[in-house]
Amino acid sequence: MGTLGRVILLQGLVKRYGAALALDGVSLEVARGECVFLVGASGCGKTSTLKVVNRLVEPDAGSVQVGGHDVRESAPHELRRRIGYAFQQVGLFPHLSVAENVGITPALLGWERARIDARVDALLERMELPPADFRARRPHQLSGGQAQRVGLARALAAGPELLLLDEPFGALDPATRDRLQQAFQRLRRELDLTVLFVSHDMAEALLLADRIAVMDAGRVVQLGTPRELLAAPADARVAALLETPRRQSARVDELLGASA
C-alpha cells in the first residue's frame, strides 16, 4: 500500500515501565478505511500500542506516523483533536451534560455553537439515543450501554478519520454488546473510518476486524486476516486464543444442524 493509503505506521516501538518491557519492537501499518484489531492477554502490550498513536504513551524508541507525518511534529492536543478515542471506562465528564460531553472536541476546536448542536444531535440519533431525551442528561443518569454509546459519539464528534478504541464494548451484557457491535460496523462503513481496536476477545475480533494483530509479551506474534489466522495460526499461543471461538462456533453449528 502507498503512503497515501496508509493512516498509521508504527516502526520498532519500545516502551519500558521500570524494569518491565511493555513494547518490545512493535511495527504495524493500518491502511485507510481498515479496521485492525490488537488482541492478546492482559499485559501483552496492546493498550500501550494503541496509546502511542495519540501520544497518551510516549515510546522510548521507535517512530509513529499518522497520516504520513511523525506524531511528534504537532502538539499532543492538536493531534488528539484529529483522532477519535474511546475506552472501556468511558470517562464521561460527570459535571457536563451528555450534549456537552459529546461536543467537547468540536468546542475545543472552536466550532460555532449551532454547528456543534447539529453535530451532537446527529450523532446521538445515530447511537439510538434520542436527543430530546438524552441531550440534557448527566452521565450518572445513563445505563452502562448508553454511556458507552455516548463515549463513542464523543470520539466521533469532530469527524476524525482515525478512531482508536480500547475495549469500547467491554463490561456490557451480551445483547447490548451485540447491538453496539452491529451499529459500529455500519457506522464504520458509512463514514469510511480507519480503526485501531484493542480487545481481549478473539470472537469480537474475528467478527469485526479486517486484520488482526495477535500480541504477546510486547511483540506482534501474528498479523493477518481472520481467515488467515483461522487457517494457519502461527504458534500455540495464537491457536489457544482461537480455540474458544472455534469451539463455540462448532457447538452452535452442531445445534443448528441438529434442529435443521
Partner: peptide, 27 residues
C-alpha cells in the same frame, strides 16, 4: 479526580491548562 477522567480529558484533545480549567477544577 478519577484517572479515567484525566485520560478522557487528554484523549479529547485538551491542553494541560484546559484540563485544569474544564475538568480538574470543576470536579
Amino acid at each position: 479526580v478519577e484517572p479515567a477522567l484525566r485520560e478522557a480529558a487528554r484523549g479529547v484533545g485538551m491542553t494541560p491548562a484546559q484540563q485544569l480549567r474544564r475538568v480538574e477544577l470543576p470536579l
